Amino acid sequence: MKRICLLLPNGFEAVEASVFTDVFGWNKEEGDGATELITVGTRPQLTCTWNFTVLPEKTLDEVTVDDFDALALPGGFEQAGFYEDAYRPDVLAFIREFDRQNKVIASICVGALPIGKSGVLQGRNATTYNLSNRNRQNQLAEMGANVLGDEPIVVDRNVITSFNPSTAFDVAFTLLEMLTSTENCNVVKKQMGFIA
């Protein structure tokens, strides 16, 4: 059984988290059933970007990287306090340890920024939010990443990054494929109506 940590900082975007819960939920029921997703919050109660309240199954202080095979990280909004939690030292150390153990790290949109802030993307290919004058992509470049600004999804070894919320399902499917197989991923895509 492959276990995925869906790490939820306060201020995350619900839609970017929900693609992971749905894709891996569908895999549990309609795919090979070989994955389990656990929601892990930076707090016991979280408020999403648009005021949706979430109670994660665990908090960060209750888990270790050894409990998981992969990390999934949605983006969020500065105005909702996303970076206050996403840039916490314990969050950055958690990300670094996933990379040190060569475990898959998948992010959507500005979820790449805490990965960059952790130092994991130094000299590696990546992307992040691509609109609004590419300010977020410039920030990621300042953190040492080689930003491929026009690529919707960038995979560099064990790290998946993407450039805006429109890529969310594709990132979740990429993670599922990396943890299971192309064939299994296609079964789930077909059951969810993404392919005929």
Rank of each mutant, 00 (worst) to 15 (best):
Ile4Ala: 00
Cys5Arg: 00
Cys5Val: 09
Pro9Met: 01
Asn10Glu: 02
Gly11Met: 00
Gly11Glu: 00
Glu13Ala: 15
Ala14Tyr: 11
Glu16Ala: 10
Ala17Cys: 07
Ser18Phe: 04
Val19Tyr: 06
Phe20Cys: 01
Gly25Ser: 03
Trp26Arg: 13
Gly31Pro: 14
Gly31Val: 05
Thr35Phe: 09
Leu37Phe: 09
Leu37Pro: 06
Leu37His: 05
Thr39Val: 02
Val40Thr: 08
Gly41Asn: 11
Gly41Gln: 03
Pro44Glu: 14
Pro44Met: 10
Cys48Ala: 15
Glu57Ile: 00
Thr59Arg: 06
Thr59Met: 12
Val63Trp: 13
Val65Lys: 02
Asp67Val: 04
Asp67Gly: 02
Asp69Pro: 10
Asp69Arg: 01
Leu71Thr: 04
Ala72Asn: 04
Ala72Phe: 05
Gly76Glu: 04
Gly76Ser: 12
Glu78Phe: 07
Phe82Asn: 01
Glu84Asn: 10
Arg88Thr: 09
Asp90Tyr: 09
Phe94Ile: 11
Ile95His: 06
Glu97His: 04
Asp99Leu: 01
Gln101Lys: 15
Asn102His: 06
Lys103Ser: 02
Ile108Arg: 01
Leu113Cys: 09
Ile115Pro: 03
Gly116Glu: 08
Lys117Leu: 09
Ser118Arg: 14
Gln122Asn: 02
Gly123Thr: 03
Asn125Pro: 01
Thr127Leu: 04
Thr128Arg: 02
Thr128Phe: 08
Tyr129Ala: 00
Asn133Tyr: 10
Asn135Glu: 11
Asn138Phe: 02
Gly144Gln: 05
Ala145Thr: 00
Ala145Asn: 05
Asn146Gly: 00
Val147Cys: 01
Val147His: 07
Gly149Gln: 10
Gly149Leu: 02
Asp156Cys: 01
Asn158Ala: 03
Ser162Asn: 11
Pro165Asp: 13
Ser166Ala: 15
Ala172Arg: 00
Phe173Arg: 00
Thr174Tyr: 03
Thr174Val: 06
Leu176Lys: 00
Leu176Trp: 02
Met178Thr: 09
Leu179Lys: 06
Leu179Gly: 11
Ser181Lys: 13
Ser181Arg: 13
Asn186Glu: 15
Val187Ala: 12
Val187Arg: 14
Val188His: 12
Val188Ala: 10
